[in-house]
Design a protein around this nucleic acid. Structure first.
Length: 834
RNA sequence: GCCGGAGUGGCGAAAUGGCAGACGCAGCGGACUCAAAAUCCGCCGGUGGCAACACCGUGAGGGUUCGAAUCCCUCUUCCGGCACCA
């Protein structure tokens, strides 16, 4: 500031109304802190609102994507609070897991050090945002006070048979040196965490029996207000198929079971195919075929999953004949049994009846190996199908043929009759099969919750008693990944005594999948210091289920499915009374780098909030993120528009600050007063509706328009009336959720009591929000030819008469025949002429 | 391959059967200033026209309708999910 301007009173006064975020933001942040205005009170008698946003990994620093994910739900939570709800809007850190561990290995420090050093920095950045967080409820999942309850829940699940240990083929990530859950494998064989190609290994692992809840997990999707695409993804993942299980006798005397969704085509089953890993393969293979079968199995095992699962048309189906034959139980036909890798051991029974006429894969296989094809479904109105000449399988509707007693039935309508018939034959029964697998929860990594069981030399596997929890993760372990659980080399941890017999025992050295941590964390926020159970059931009952959950679409399956499963388990344990954790879900889009790629620290594509806040202020950055576009859409980052948001704040601030606490009792023409009040109330309506609809960009547009109007009016007589005070106070209140800092300062300058964030949301008066006159277009043959101003609520007829009275219209329709007249009240008039 | 979502100015976008481009950015012109920044005012899809105005225009083509960015059909491009699931 120059010496000269300081000496000029006029400039000095103008400066007093100049917006300066560097002065405003720290001041009010401190004030809110000192007065603890965001402290949540469990005993409030207001109605509750639980707004939850997915907690972050403590990865170091926030980027603008984190702000996008959090600042916008903060706006919604603030609206709910001003509406009179007792709002819980908590925050914590998903602190266990591979990112922490890998970063720690890279930087050669301990994961705990890395994690707990990062948290304060991130909290500072959330506070800078002006978020309404009550940090007294913070949850950090790597705290023993938290993961103790992971162990407790695990033991409850073990008691109920929902946790079990089992061997079998599991996904192994050679980079992360650990097993993965099915849900953590992308595109058939890519590690969800690190992108490495994973493969199957036979290992004994811990599972949660999520499949017990498959039916309910599917059905309850109908009860929640979630984006349809998320529900669809979950339905696909759960993958319910209705059909029948059929038994085929083999000549060896064994029974080969298959699952089929099309039991109606059983007469067309001309061969059978088993997965190469099927346990019966060794037993039934004949001596002549053995060498060939062994070679095929060996080859299948060596192939990568990508190669095996390739659906490339140009790659012919492979397989070999086992030498064995089965008897088709419905028509006693003797059919050959093959093995082929297109049949998966992990689905159904690992074996199929092959119906080449009805299934494209079976068709290709049959053609390739010259196996017979018998059509059993005849499509309507076509030449009878012939197995010799068919060029592709037919799986559509039609009439059953070549099927003895089933002939003449209509598919798919008569499917129930077919199932009934199959069951009557005693060789099969109706069955529902699921794509969902049990959740593999053990990991051969360090930075996670130890699984609370021991293996006693005499008693076998023994759960750690509840009163010995938590089984603490030792901080002095060698945690570099070796493919074995790191805890295995920690003698002090490994060796213990058996809780049952007191003899020597070894601890389980695997840790839990970190998705376990996030499967119940929102309950912990309701009573973060409770020490008798994972959470206080009474307090949880007060707050949960979560009313609004916000987070990224990337969790559509993994986290959200597990969280739903846990809620149902906790209900069955008796801790909660509901089965669906999140009543309403909204997904934000992803903020990409300017180049359109994911923001990543390692690739240097991350844009942090600190510099932007220093330059433009947190309020402007919040607005900019809201104004970028629809929140559910996301998009590439750009900071071009942020200056526009700053300009808007400056104008709003100036208008309000100039008004200050001046007495306003001036006079102005009634119509001007009415026009201003109407604008004010229409703006309240628009802003309220837009926030409710998560349409934050148009909400900001409405605030800007309102401010621009006030800017024009500020030197007219209405600016001296009570309606003006209503207008500027309303502007301040409407801005409070979006721009908490400057709204607080504006409220203060208007001479009001601290805090704007403890005020009620303005209500609008419907009659004031209604406009007196509307301008509508008048069209001739669908083209706009004039615009007329008519009274709001004018009838169809009056509106039409007014349109015809227009000079432009009457001259253009003169001498023409009116074919049709359309008049939509308040919208338009269209006159069709010839 | 199947399922879902999207394609609108120079850019982010609005409008989900009724005036296409609200609002913002960038740009252009002007005011203020010694000057710059900031601020304020105006213009800002294309073509033609001095203008009034006319015509064209929402990925492409067709359809329904008095009227379509919006609904229907075909195609196309991009994004997301699932995928040899019997």
């Amino acid at each position: 500031m120059s010496v000269q301007s300081e000496a000029t009173p006029k400039t000095h006064e103008a400066d007093a109304h100049r917006y300066d975020h560097t002065a405003i933001e720290p001041k009010w942040r401190q004030e809110w802190n000192e007065k603890a205005i965001y402290r949540v009170d469990d005993s409030s008698d207001k109605p509750k609102w639980y707004s939850l946003t997915m907690y972050p990994y403590p990865s170091g620093v926030l980027h603008v994507g984190h702000w996008y994910a959090f600042a916008i739900p903060d706006v919604f939570a603030r609206l709910q609070r001003m509406r009179g709800y007792n709002v819980l809007f908590p925050m914590g850190f998903d602190a266990f897991g591979l990112p922490a561990e890998n970063a720690a290995i890279r930087n050669n420090i301990h994961p705990a050090t890395w994690t707990y050093d990062n948290i304060p920095q991130m909290k500072r950045q959330y506070d800078m945002m002006g978020a309404m967080i009550d940090w007294s409820r913070e949850v950090i999942t790597s705290d023993p006070d938290y993961y103790k309850w992971n162990q407790w829940i695990f033991l409850k699940m073990l008691e109920r048979g929902l946790a079990y240990r089992s061997g079998g083929a599991v996904w192994w990530c050679p980079n992360d040196q650990t097993v993965l859950a099915n849900e953590q494998v992308l595109d058939g064989s890519i590690c969800e965490r690190c992108g490495a190609e994973v493969y199957k290994r036979d290992l004994e692992q811990w599972y949660f029996r999520i499949t017990d809840y498959a039916e309910e997990l599917l059905a309850d999707l109908d009860k929640v207000d979630w984006p349809e695409r998320v529900k669809t993804m979950q339905r696909n993942w759960i993958g319910r198929s209705e059909g029948a299980r059929l038994q085929f006798e083999l000549e060896t005397g064994d029974t080969l079971e298959v699952f089929t969704t099309r039991p109606d085509t059983v007469f067309g089953a001309t061969f059978m195919v088993m997965a190469p890993e099927h346990p019966l393969v060794q037993k039934i293979t004949t001596d002549e075929q053995r060498a060939e079968v062994e070679a095929y199995i060996d080859k299948a095992r060596r192939e990568t999953e990508i190669e095996r699962q390739s659906t490339d048309e140009s790659r012919p189906k492979t397989g070999v004949f086992t030498g064995a034959y089965a008897i088709n139980p419905m028509n006693d036909q003797k059919i050959p049994v093959w093995i082929a890798d297109y049949v998966l051991m992990g689905y159904g029974t690992g074996a199929i009846m092959a119906v080449p006429s009805g299934d494209e894969r079976d068709f290709q296989f049959a053609r390739h190996f010259g196996l017979p094809i018998i059509p059993t479904i005849q499509p309507d109105g076509q030449e009878p199908l012939d197995g010799e000449t068919m060029t592709e399988a037919y799986s559509g509707p039609g009439t059953i043929v070549n099927s003895g007693p089933l002939n003449g039935l209509r598919m798919p309508e008569d499917q129930p009759k077919v199932i009934e018939w199959v069951e009557k034959q005693g060789r099969g029964k109706a069955e529902v099969t699921w794509r969902l697998r049990d959740w593999l929860i053990s990991r051969q990594r360090y930075w996670g919750t130890p699984i609370p069981v021991v293996y006693c030399d005499d008693c076998g596997m023994v759960p750690v008693p509840e009163d010995q929890l938590p089984v603490e993760l030792p901080l002095d372990a060698e945690f570099k990944p070796t493919g074995q659980s790191p805890l295995m080399t920690h003698e002090g941890f490994l060796n213990t005594t058996c809780p049952t017999c007191g003899g020597h025992a070894r601890r389980e050295t695997d840790t839990m999948d970190t998705f376990m941590d996030s499967s119940w964390y929102w309950f912990r926020y309701t009573s973060p210091n409770y020490d008798k159970a994972p959470f206080d059931p009474a307090t949880a009952a007060q707050w949960t289920p979560v009313d609004l959950y916000c987070g990224g679409i990337e969790h559509a399956i993994l986290h959200l499915l597990y969280a739903r499963f846990f809620t149902k388990v906790l209900r069955d344990i008796g801790l909660v009374d509901h089965g669906e954790p999140f009543t309403r879900l909204r997904n934000q889009g992803m903020i990409l780098s300017a180049e359109g790629v994911k923001m990543s620290k390692s690739r240097g594509t991350q844009v942090g909030p600190d510099e932007l806040v220093a330059e433009h202020g947190a309020d402007a950055l919040r607005l900019h993120l809201m104004f970028l576009g629809p929140w559910e859409q996301g998009g590439p980052w750009n900071d071009r528009g942020i200056t526009g948001m700053e300009r808007f704040i400056r104008r709003a601030f100036q208008i309000v600050s100039e008004t200050g606490d001046k007495q306003l009792d001036g006079e102005a023409p009634e119509s001007d007063v009415r026009a201003l009040r109407s604008l004010t109330h229409r703006t309240i309506r628009k802003v309220t509706e837009d926030i409710d609809d998560f349409s934050f960009n148009t909400m900001i547009a409405a605030l800007i328009e309102y401010t621009n109007e006030l800017m024009k009016l500020r030197e007219t007589p209405v600016a001296k009336t009570a309606a003006w005070r209503e207008a500027v106070e309303t502007l301040t209140l409407l801005m409070a959720p979006s721009t908490p800092y400057v709204a607080e300062e504006m409220w203060h300058r208007l001479g009001n009591e601290f805090s704007v964030h403890q005020q009620s949301w303005p209500a609008y008066d419907e009659s004031l929000a209604t406009v007196d006159t509307v301008e509508i277009p008048v069209q001739i043959n669908g083209k706009v030819r004039d615009k007329i101003v008519i009274a709001n609520g004018a009838s169809k007829e009056d509106q039409l008469a007014a349109a015809k009275a227009s000079e432009k219209i009457s001259s253009q329709i003169a001498g023409k025949t009116i074919v049709k007249e359309i008049s939509v009240p308040g919208r338009l008039v269209n006159i069709v002429v010839k």
